[in-house]
């Protein structure tokens, strides 16, 4: 029952968002011309017709680390809530956990996974 408001709110927002999507279509003028829908690339012919190609990014390893650390965060949240009832036991347990976490981070750091990954050997 707690989530009732949330769900209603979600549907209301969905409605508003859909309205926004079609608002211009409903209210705006329609004056099509040949080059109006040409993708923006500074007003010159496109070199590659499609922009939906492979695109190397430097944070691939960071993405993997995000998964790991977010899962660990999910483990930590329950602990943070009940920490005050756990006493010394909880502190030591979690200290070990965080220590391992930090060790993992240092390991990744040392391996260079935290750096922006410029691909070294590119096609020549």
């Amino acid at each position: 029952m707690d989530y009732l408001g949330f769900v209603i709110f979600g549907f209301v927002m969905l409605g508003i968002a859909l309205l926004m999507v079609f608002l211009n279509y409903l209210l705006g003028p329609k004056a099509p011309s040949a080059l109006k829908d040409y993708p923006y690339e500074c007003g010159v012919p496109l070199y590659d017709k499609s922009a939906q190609a492979t695109f190397h990014q430097g944070y691939y390893l960071l993405g993997l680390l995000l998964l790991l650390f977010d899962i660990e965060a999910a483990f930590l949240f329950p602990w943070t809530v009940v920490y005050r009832y756990l006493g010394v036991f909880g502190f030591v347990e979690m200290f070990l956990f965080i220590f391992i976490l930090i060790y993992g981070l240092l390991y990744a750091w040392r391996k260079g996974a935290l750096d922006w990954q410029f691909e070294e050997e590119y096609i020549d």
Partner: peptide
Amino acid sequence: KAQLVLNWGPL
């Protein structure tokens, strides 16, 4: 020779 050729300019 790489992935994308981006026109940067003139506009």
